[in-house]
């Protein structure tokens, strides 16, 4: 694992994500930013077996983005990896375009329709059970939101997955601490989340979701796990990670930067790219 390369990729993707949202004038930037490192670790860190030229390859790992509102990160990665042309990002939320504000299965590389929460874990559990019953080699990985755990269907799926010993299933919760309008602990408290998932029969690992070292450590061994339990990675993250004025703020769930905020956002994201090993000009950052 080349941490510097992954950090550069994460920084670059954040700029693409912001540009995509700015061009469309809409999109959920903070919940996309909070799982950038998780996405990069999975898609660029060698932890998912996928083929961009053959998105339906039968032995691919199945990746389900259950927190569909975080789709800008998925779109940026899939475009960057060649699942579809990068120019599609410029049409995000455009009339009749491929990429809507939440993902669907018209998009190469997308396995489920998400955006309404509480679907992805059950869908992933069904996939994992089917794979387990027939000893398919592929794994199922889903990224969920923390606020999503307020959906009852999540816990139905949690019970089901542990009961059926779906050790080929990995769920990652992007624990950024915020729902759409407020902190999860102020809406309906989720904590103690680790012990809740353990009580539901899962192996639970809590990590810093922005640390490639920690992500690699846990993702690097999930294929060789001996445990029969499904694996829950509680990734402690910061919503809006990468933009100081957006981080952990209740105001930004689907707000788009304007005026000076745009300049400041680009300055900060370019700074991150520079410090991770590359140099971008202001024109490049704006997509000129």
């Amino acid at each position: 694992m080349n941490v510097q390369a992954l950090e550069y990729k994460a920084a670059e993707l954040r700029l693409h994500i912001l540009r995509t949202a700015l061009k469309a004038g809409k999109g959920h930037v903070p919940p996309a930013f909070s799982w950038v490192e998780i996405g990069v670790a999975l898609f660029y860190g060698g932890h998912l077996n996928l083929r961009s030229h053959d998105p339906k390859w039968e032995n691919r790992d199945r990746f389900i983005l259950s927190k569909g509102h975080g789709c800008l990160t998925l779109y940026a990665m899939l475009a960057d990896l060649g699942f579809f042309p990068k120019t599609e990002l410029d049409n995000f939320c455009g009339p009749g375009s491929l990429l809507a504000g939440h993902p669907d299965t018209q998009i190469p590389g997308v396995e489920g329709v998400s955006g309404s929460l509480g679907h992805g874990l059950g869908l992933s559990a069904g996939l994992a059970l089917g794979a387990k019953l027939h000893s398919y080699p592929w794994k199922v990985v889903t990224v969920m939101g923390d606020g999503e755990c307020q959906e009852g269907s999540v816990w139905e799926a949690a019970m089901f997955a542990s009961h059926h010993q779906l050790h080929n299933l990995v769920a990652i919760i992007d624990r950024n601490g915020l729902g759409a309008t407020n902190y999860t602990e102020k809406n309906v408290a989720l904590e103690p989340l680790v012990s809740k998932w353990k009580a539901f029969g899962w192996e639970v690992v809590s990590i810093n979701g922005h640390s490639f070292e920690e992500l690699d450590k846990v993702l690097g061994c999930f294929r060789q796990r001996q445990s029969l339990k499904p694996l829950m990675i509680l990734a402690q993250t910061v919503k809006g990670k990468g933009l100081s004025f957006m981080e952990a703020s209740v105001d930004w769930h689907h707000r788009i930067p304007k005026g000076e905020e745009v300049e400041e956002a680009i300055r900060q994201l370019m700074g991150a790219i520079s410090s991770s090993g590359s140099v971008l000009t202001m024109e490049m950052a704006h997509g000129a």
Partner: peptide
Amino acid sequence: NVGISEQNMMSVAAGMALSGY
């Protein structure tokens, strides 16, 4: 028997169908 959990039952059904069932 997936238990008394209709929402999960349908998501699981879809997932199993995607896996070839």
